[in-house]
Simulated scan of single mutants.
Amino acid sequence: MARDRETGNLHPANVDGDTDAEKEIARLTGVIHDLWQILDQQGEMICRFRPDTTLTYVNQAYAAYYGKRPEEMVGMRFITMAPPARRTQVMAYLRTFTPEKPINTFELRTVKAGGSVRWTWWREYAHFAADGSIDHFHSIGRDVTEMRLMELALADARFRLRRKESRPPDPSDVPLSRRERQIADLIVVGHTNKQIAGELGLQVSSVKVYITSLFRKLEVRNRTQAATRLLEQDPADS
């Protein structure tokens, strides 16, 4: 501050300097705003979260995938959206990041409300504090369901061709109906017959019929063997 020699009043010193600083702040604020808009306009899903999975930023594509608005998701822990049987696996996975290996990729298969199955591919980056602890993650994902469905259709075509040629089927090409695939996904995450019935709106007796068919196609005798076979076919879920 400086004092006016004639009036004795105090006024800010170096007015030109302060004006330049205000202009720079306004410019940088505008740049940051533009960058957030660019992120929101991306087709890929983008989020940032703390090690406890609390979301601190999500773009429009990420929120839309979960049927929510960005402001609804910021502050929530995304671990709460995972099936209870998989939450321990998710937290263990996040602990595998190190300063030497700060980037990882994986593919996630999700059974959404109504029984539809979606696949998403993710690349995640861990950012570390000075003491070596994880400060936060940022993650970029995209929906690869169409590609996965094409792969399943190809496997189905190969299976039918082998059947036509009377050749023994390759276990990795076993075709499952849409309902059998839904039930298989729920078996992998540890759902009981009653839980599967509730999730898909079926009778427990119907679920048992589907599971019998599923076991026959997978050439297994129980749920543990079925889950193991399915994870062998789809290692991204492990």
Rank of each mutant, 00 (worst) to 15 (best):
M1D: 11
D4G: 05
H11N: 08
P12N: 08
N14T: 06
T19K: 13
D20G: 06
E22D: 11
K23A: 12
K23V: 11
E24I: 10
A26K: 13
G30H: 10
G30F: 05
G30S: 12
V31A: 07
H33V: 04
I38V: 15
D40A: 07
G43M: 09
M45H: 02
I46C: 05
R50P: 00
P51K: 07
D52M: 06
T53W: 11
T54G: 03
L55N: 01
L55P: 01
Y57F: 13
Y57H: 12
N59G: 04
N59I: 04
A63Y: 00
K68L: 10
E72A: 05
I79G: 01
R87A: 02
R87I: 02
V90N: 04
M91W: 04
A92I: 05
R95V: 06
R95N: 15
F97I: 10
F97P: 03
I103L: 13
N104I: 03
T105R: 14
F106M: 14
S116E: 09
S116H: 07
S116F: 04
V117I: 15
W119D: 00
H127I: 15
G132A: 06
G132L: 05
D135Y: 02
H136N: 11
G141K: 01
R142H: 13
D143E: 12
T145E: 02
R148D: 03
E151L: 08
L152Y: 06
A153S: 12
L154Y: 12
L154E: 14
A155K: 10
A155W: 00
F159Q: 08
R160S: 05
S166V: 11
R167A: 12
P171L: 10
P171D: 08
S172Y: 07
D173G: 01
D173Q: 08
S177W: 00
E180I: 01
R181M: 02
I183E: 00
L186T: 01
V188A: 02
Q195K: 11
Q195Y: 04
G198D: 14
E199I: 03
L200W: 03
L202N: 09
L202S: 09
Q203T: 08
S205P: 01
T212F: 08
S213Y: 00
F215I: 09
F215A: 05
K217P: 01
L218F: 03
E219L: 08
N222R: 06
T228H: 09
L230N: 00
Q233W: 02
P235F: 02
D237I: 04
